[in-house]
Amino acid sequence: MPKSSPHPSLGFGLGVRPIHYDALLGERKGSVGWLEALTENYLLPGGKPLHYLERLRTEYPIVLHGVSLSIGSTDPLNETYLREVKALADRVEPAWISDHLCWTGVDGVNLHDLMPLPFTEPTLNHVVSRIAAVQERLGRRLVLENVSSYVNFSRSDLTEWEFLREIAERADCHLLLDVNNVYVSSVNHNFDPMTYLRGIPVERVQQFHLAGHRNMGDYLIDTHDEPVCEAVWELFHAAVERFGPVSTMIERDDNIPELDVLLAELARARDITTSAQKSKSAA
């Protein structure tokens, strides 16, 4: 696979959720630039979910976003899963396929959660070799997302941003920078999120995620059930200044409002992008 630049920006999108299917195909058709579909929700024999995904893909560019690749697990790669993802991708023709830089289980168990990795050289070697295998199976470059985390392993001798940079460069994959996750982890692990952003190579970032989290006082939990908060908007402004206009979307997985509410939030992302680009070119 030749080394390539990130996919050109698709503009501003949303994570597609079933309650918005009809609006996205009807009265709000064309209201977003692209849609991100959760891969596992469409690994199905047929019926309504795939029917709607087929219709949506005629109206919008689609990106597939998985949660079960478990790229950092020490279990063998799940070849059945990879075949199913490949078959879905052949059908949907997504602009790209993303998943998370994490592990989701060992010994055949799926914990259905994004578990943290120790940031060490041995982990790097392990994950990089698996990314190569997955990129070969899927016939395309992977896009991997930084996760929110609540623990740091004592054995970690790299920072998260150093780890992410090494992964992207050694495996020649792209990154999905979740700005909310950077913020959540910065509070939970007491680091400067700006240092994190500065540690990520510009040419590797293909997508931004924005989302809400829950403030628990001493720490934050990544819940995707609230609007994007002010601190994350500020960090997003800085991210656009650094990485330029990158495909940006809002993730909402719980307490999902009407589409118009999310479109208003997305309009703010658009405004911030415009303003960040202006301030960058003025600088």
């Binding site: 020490t74 289980g105 010994d107 914990l111 959660d113 578990m115």
Partner: peptide
């Protein structure tokens, strides 16, 4: 490399046992 992988596997197994 083998003991590194084993060590990561042990960490993940311990983590999973805690979660479950």
């Amino acid at each position: 490399a083998q003991s590194d992988a084993h060590s990561l596997a042990e960490l993940q197994r311990d983590f999973q046992r805690h979660v479950m």
